[in-house]
Simulated assay, not measured.
Amino acid sequence: MGDLALVFVDLEGAQNNAPTKMVAKFSPIKTNTPTFIIKNVFGTEAHWYNDFLEEDQGFGRPEAYFIAAKLVHVRPWKRLPVFCMLFEAMPPAPYSRTSGCGNLDHLKAVMSVLGSFHAKWWNHPKQYPLNFLNHPTDYNSIGKNLVIAGAKLGLPALKQCFGDVYAPVLEWTPLIRKHLKWFVDQVFTPPFTVCHGDVHLDNIFFNDEWPTGIKMIDFGNIQFGQGMFDVAYFMGTNIEPDLRRAHQDELMQGYHAELVRGGVKGYSLDDCWRDYKLNLFRVLINIMFVTWTDFRKPHKNKTGIFAAEPTPKDAKLRATYDAVNRRCAASLVDAKFDELLKSATPTCSVCCCCICCA
């Protein structure tokens, strides 16, 4: 969503460890994204960098050199909020969402860090120093309605744009609609922790010299939620299906061991697996919503990532979505998400035809 620039500076009279290379991140100048979303995403990231020391957050992240925002203008109806952030430059990411990660040690490291991070904030109330984060109970749980709307709008869009790869999942559409309210109630049920919200390989860097061996970036989606959303996003969309099938038990056990080591009680390994299966579909809803907002018109017009001769940028984005979609579909099928739905009580209501009601 934001604009990035690599910045090099010449310094006079500076300390020996003063940075001469950094990354600048700006909020977008022109965008169709509503102003309140710009404020929320960039404001959350600014708080996360500005309000905590790295060692107090629970996992590694780049050092922040400068965080600034201008939220109000003389003519606010004509101007977007402006954010500018300067961060420590990271080494090149060894993996991407497109390539996936086949290094088992690195996969274990990510799961371990997620476990210790989630344990640190497990059941933490929405109060200082986390009062700026969105919480599932905010605004009378309006987030439930947004998730329902994302599913209802997204299922037809998914069929239109990526129907082939998601064919097995789309066969469950009547079942999903029948149990949608039940599903939303489940993923909005405690325990909650702080979730990164965007745990993919383009946001993860590795270095054995760092305390946890890992640093993450992109904190605009950080919020309270079920920790299994981060785990489902990472395991379900960043690891090739054969590798995931071979090692998912080991990876989940490592995550759960870190929860226990961090003091979490009353949340078993079986609880992890159940919430993982639920949150795989929550991950898909995010993909479906982006498909609905960004890809329906390009698909219809054969432009963008669906063009016969896409630009290099669009070709890269298509390769990313091809990889993510393939892994996500396989994860849902392997998890037998449909059987989990069949075990639930149907929850259709008199307003189930409303776009934001189940």
Rank of each mutant, 00 (worst) to 15 (best):
R177T: 14
G115Q: 08
F132R: 15
V187L: 07
L175E: 10
R245L: 13
G115T: 14
G154E: 07
Q127V: 13
G115W: 10
L170A: 07
V110S: 01
W121R: 06
V113M: 03
F117Y: 10
R177W: 11
A232N: 09
G197P: 10
A119S: 07
A151K: 01
C195G: 12
W121M: 07
I239V: 15
G236D: 05
Y166G: 01
Q127M: 00
Y233R: 13
L114P: 07
K144Y: 00
G220F: 00
V187Y: 03
P168N: 09
G225D: 00
N238M: 12
W182S: 12
V187A: 11
Q186C: 14
H200N: 11
N238T: 10
L180S: 06
H200Q: 10
V147Y: 02
I214Y: 06
D242M: 11
C195A: 09
V184C: 00
V165S: 06
F117E: 04
Q160G: 12
L130C: 09
K126W: 15
L153K: 04
L170F: 13
E171H: 10
Q160F: 13
H200P: 11
D105L: 14
M216N: 06
L133K: 08
Y139F: 14
D242S: 10
P190F: 12
S112A: 04
P211T: 13
